[in-house]
Design a protein around this nucleic acid. Structure first.
Lengths: 191, 191
DNA sequence: AAGTTTTCCTTTACATAGTAAAGTCAACAT
DNA sequence: ATGTTGACTTTACTATGTAAAGGAAAACTT
């Protein structure tokens, strides 16, 4: 069996780690994987195709972790917090992948695999919220609003913390712990 | 006086509109501005420098609009909603600029002008929240948490709506109106 | 007024990047 | 033996970022 595509995607990880997201080059990826400078294009058609495959894998990893957070406890309120923490941890642990997630223009967005990997994350979050609401929490709210509120907040918090001035006022405080605390505040206000 | 830099930044706008953010080329920008293919590099040093200048202008525009929203009413609760709507409207009206805002890696992030333009937005938002809290709203909350909650939500909502599956469940509904409504829900839950 | 500097851009030159197209070469099928 | 497919590589071409030097005209100096 042929594991060359996987090796190429792993090479992308290393290239981003070494040269940043903009330093990703089909040629460099090929060389890093011990192949020719066109190998990546051969498998993924072109550069956006390579990024699409890379991102699909990343979204599936996030989706998997969200699902794991959901499955690990019966307390769906805790599951919400865990899912948020999971997302934040992913951003810290896999900055390469996370940085490319903010750059969908680099990819072929309409790739079905990529689309469904992103939906997997969406449905993972949605499932936890539905379960929590069925347990009586925030019963009068539109579930779409609950999803929008929580997801937008978590995503925005992580992105602004990593890239911007949001972190500064919390001088020195731990990122994941702060997110957990503020998100907990938000959730208890919504109930 | 020399307005060539401004003309170059305007050219960036048109190039993004015609060819997308990834279609921005120093050469194209030069040509679009009626100059040589190195003119943009001459004024802004290199491509990241060009983007930094472009982004600085964009952040200042947003900051200005936030400040205008704050100044237009004595009701600081309304000002919060207006500021959020303003941000969403900017994302819709200036998709070129908004799309580059998500891509700080393309720029020299450490440019002081860019940094202070971003802070201008931050302080604009913070000022409204401080005012509202001084009027007795959410008095027991940490102001930093209020800023984080509102800003992260608004930013995340806009970004996810524009780029992702958040819009789908609200099939056909108006973007700014939906944001306003959900944000209003959030704010009243926080009080 | 003549020379000098400065400002504002252009020309030239080159290394790197994406990518199309054709080639190689081994495994396999018929 | 003879295709045929799969898995890449080689070659070749065009676009792009960017360094370096040039040049023309305005501004300034004496």
């Amino acid at each position: 069996m042929n594991d060359t595509p996987t090796r190429l995607l792993d090479a992308v990880d290393r290239v981003i780690a070494d040269h940043g997201p903009s330093g990703v080059t089909l040629r460099r990826v090929g060389t890093e994987a011990g192949l020719s400078h066109t190998a990546a294009a051969h498998y993924f058609k072109d550069k956006p195709g390579l990024f699409a495959a890379y991102l699909t894998r990343a979204y599936n990893q996030v989706g998997e972790r969200i699902e794991a957070a959901a499955a690990s406890t019966d307390d769906s309120y805790q599951a919400m917090l865990d899912a948020a923490a999971t997302y934040a941890e992913f951003a810290i642990e896999s900055p390469s992948a996370f940085s490319v997630m903010q750059r969908l223009e680099l990819t072929h967005v309409d790739t079905p695999d990529l689309w469904s990997a992103r939906e997997r994350c969406y449905f993972g979050v949605a499932a936890i919220l539905v379960r929590q609401q069925e347990a009586g929490w925030a019963a009068e709210r539109d579930i779409r609003d609950l999803i929008a509120l929580t997801w937008a907040f978590v995503h925005g918090f992580v992105e602004l913390w990593v890239s911007g001035p949001l972190a500064a006022p919390y001088d020195g405080e731990d990122f994941v712990a702060t997110l957990r605390r503020v998100f907990d505040d938000l959730l208890s206000s919504l109930a």
